[in-house]
Amino acid sequence: CHSECLGNCSQPDDPTKCVACRNFYLDGRCVETCPPPYYHFQDWRCVNFSFCQDLHHKCKNSRRQGCHQYVIHNNKCIPECPSGYTMNSSNLLCTPCLGPCPKVCHLLEGEKTIDSVTSAQELRGCTVINGSLIINIRGGNNLAAELEANLGLIEEISGYLKIRRSYALVSLSFFRKLRLIRGETLEIGNYSFYALDNQNLRQLWDWSKHNLTITQGKLFFHYNPKLCLSEIHKMEEVSGTKGRQERNDIALKTNGDQASCENELLKFSYIRTSFDKILLRWEPYWPPDFRDLLGFMLFYKEAPYQNVTEFDGQDACGSNSWTVVDIDPPLRSNDPKSQNHPGWLMRGLKPWTQYAIFVKTLVTFSDERRTYGAKSDIIYVQTDATNPSVPLDPISVSNSSSQIILKWKPPSDPNGNITHYLVFWERQAEDSELFELDYCLKGLKLPSRTWSPPFESEDSQKHNQSEYEDSAGECCSCPKTDSQILKELEESSFRKTFEDYLHNVVFVPRKT
């Protein structure tokens, strides 16, 4: 048989008469490798580009789960590009990614509803959504962080984005990388972005840091009482949809009607710091009717980097990364020049730590249904340095008659930039024990000054392991946590139920 035959053949030295091919099969003959313009397919066939392209389009058009959109890589027609490569849609070739590779997620039936953290986790790592997304989240724990972890990498949506009755959302900033909504599939009414009845939605994105392009379709905003109209108009300008909307697409009466839409800028007039305090004062603000001013709200939190936005980490279910302080308005003076500047002394802060701070007014709604208010920009203030805590785990070892090696770990709280350490030492008198000992005694162990690591005695271990207080009263049991108490109650309830079950099964009433 021919060298490319495997198993047997019907005619000697003829690659077209093989029972099976050793390498690849091409047009009725066995070959060692697939010549151009053919590609290896499933490690035994040679196919042309049209064959591989037909497989790709067949799966793409069917949208069946589990099928493969075949691509070409290293002269092979394979189910998908290997790690580190992405497909070129024009020629199906796998090309190296520039940075992290995109991950295209194809949605069944063309859309997916995100109504819980669990459903959001199914899209973790996706960068391109081939379909439409509907966000409908009523509640949950730590929602802002969970949504950002699972949806934060999405850069492109081919269909539309719909935010509907998501009472738990305060902001859409968890879509931190969303840059493009194509609108290839539109919501009824030709809408590519749809926001309806979101009672706590206050911000779409921080438009000073976020760009969003909507290729096709219109915007729809109705019944978002805490979303200011200025935020919607800003989205029109940034996304390129200005002029597409009709009169009733953006409701003037049901958007922002319960919001404090600040239209003035508060400026800080005085800032002073110490290692654990920050004193702030800002310019006074009074609405047209000074009785509408209820006070100020001061927001602050630790910020290692200057990239904080107002609604980071917030949701309507209680999660809030900001510390909020309510401040009463100052006494009002008739003389504008003698107006008191409101302020606040922030206490209990960490030394040498940068804080993000902003302040906003708290006002009631005027009778004319106009909203007044003022808010400052987010500023960054760093507390002063102070003395560091003591170095940890000092170790001293003498390696000769004239040297001592000293080692330690950095302090747990540096409280500033540590530039150097101060080492103090003092000579001590020799131990009298060394002169009084009889060095001729056998088995004498000389006193040693070398360091030995501390260890816990058996008594201390027994005390720590004991669940009861000892007789001397030195140790006591740790208080039980809520989960331990709940577990004990469940076990007790189970024992009672099981005992009742045994009584009912074992003891049967005697027939009379």
Rank of each mutant, 00 (worst) to 15 (best):
G140S: 15
G125W: 05
Q382P: 09
T383H: 01
A120D: 01
R244F: 11
W322N: 12
A374S: 02
F299H: 12
F220V: 13
R347I: 04
L108Y: 14
D289S: 02
F299I: 12
E122F: 10
E237W: 10
Y167C: 03
L362H: 12
Y305H: 13
D115R: 10
L172N: 02
R281N: 13
Y223V: 04
E236F: 13
T241N: 13
N263I: 08
K103Q: 04
A149M: 12
F299E: 09
E368P: 05
T213A: 09
D115H: 15
K177Q: 11
W286I: 14
R369D: 02
E262M: 02
S260I: 04
C317G: 08
K360S: 01
P391T: 02
L227E: 03
L227Q: 06
Q203M: 12
H210W: 05
P411H: 05
S269Q: 10
V308R: 08
I327S: 05
K234A: 13
V128G: 10
D289W: 00
L362G: 01
G159A: 12
F174M: 07
P342S: 05
T241R: 06
I134V: 14
H222Q: 07
G131V: 01
K409W: 09
T273H: 14
R179W: 14
K162P: 01
N130A: 10
S166T: 08
N211D: 07
F221P: 00
K209M: 11
T273D: 01
K177D: 15
I181V: 12
R370W: 06
L212T: 10
A251N: 15
D206P: 10
V363T: 08
D292V: 02
Y194M: 14
L123F: 05
A120P: 02
I114V: 10
S173A: 13
L107A: 12
N387Y: 13
D335T: 14
G139T: 07
N142L: 14
N198T: 05
P351K: 06
F358I: 09
R369M: 06
H222Y: 04
L266V: 03
R165F: 08
G256A: 13
E368V: 15
E302A: 15
G373R: 03
M235W: 06
F175V: 08
Q121T: 03
V117C: 04
N263A: 05
L212K: 02
R369N: 10
T127F: 15
G140L: 15
S239R: 11
I357H: 01
S402D: 09
K234N: 14
W322G: 15
K234C: 13
T113N: 04
R138V: 01
R369C: 03
D257E: 10
N248M: 13
I114S: 03
T118W: 03
R281F: 15
I134A: 05
R138Q: 08
F174A: 08
A316V: 11
Y372V: 08
K242H: 14
D393V: 15
I327D: 00
F311R: 14
T254Y: 11
D257S: 05
I135T: 00
S260E: 02
R138P: 05
S132H: 05
P342A: 07
L172W: 02
K409S: 07
D335N: 07
L107R: 06
I114Y: 03
I278H: 00
M235F: 09
Q199W: 04
N224Q: 07
K350A: 11
S333E: 11
V104G: 03
R179D: 14
I378C: 05
D384P: 12
L265Q: 13
N263H: 06
A374Q: 02
N136A: 05
D328G: 05
N211S: 09
G140Q: 14
R138W: 02
R247N: 08
D377V: 09
N224A: 06
C105K: 00
T127M: 15
V390L: 09
D367K: 06
E231H: 12
P342K: 04
G318R: 12
Q121A: 00
L161M: 07
D367S: 06
P394K: 07
K407G: 03
S400T: 08
A259I: 12
N387D: 05
K360L: 00
Q199C: 00
P329W: 04
I327N: 02
R272W: 14
G295A: 08
S400H: 12
Q354C: 15
V359M: 04
S274M: 11
D377Q: 11
A120V: 06
L186K: 12
K218N: 15
D276V: 01
P351N: 02
Q354P: 08
T386R: 11
E109P: 06
N224H: 11
G140H: 14
F193C: 03
K226H: 14
A145N: 12
T113V: 11
P388F: 02
F275M: 08
D312M: 12
T254S: 13
I188Q: 10
S321Q: 14
Q199R: 06
A251P: 11
A259M: 05
L252N: 08
K218P: 15
T361E: 04
K234G: 13
G217N: 10
R164F: 08
L204R: 03
R179S: 10
L345A: 02
I357E: 00
K177T: 13
L172D: 03
L169P: 11
D326C: 04
Y380T: 13
F221M: 09
H233L: 01
L172Y: 06
F290D: 15
Y194A: 14
I135A: 05
S132K: 02
V170I: 14
K162I: 03
F175M: 10
N198V: 05
S274H: 11
L349W: 00
S166M: 15
S389A: 09
S319V: 13
Q339P: 11
S171M: 08
E148G: 12
C317T: 05
P284R: 03
S119K: 05
N320F: 10
F299G: 04
N142M: 08
I188R: 07
P304E: 06
R247Y: 11
Y355E: 01
W408T: 01
E109I: 10
S166V: 09
E236M: 04
L161I: 12
Q216R: 06
I154L: 13
K253A: 13
K337G: 12
W322F: 06
L169F: 11
S321G: 10
N320M: 13
V308H: 00
K350V: 03
F175K: 03
W408H: 00
C105L: 03
N141G: 15
C105E: 03
C126R: 00
V359F: 03
N307R: 10
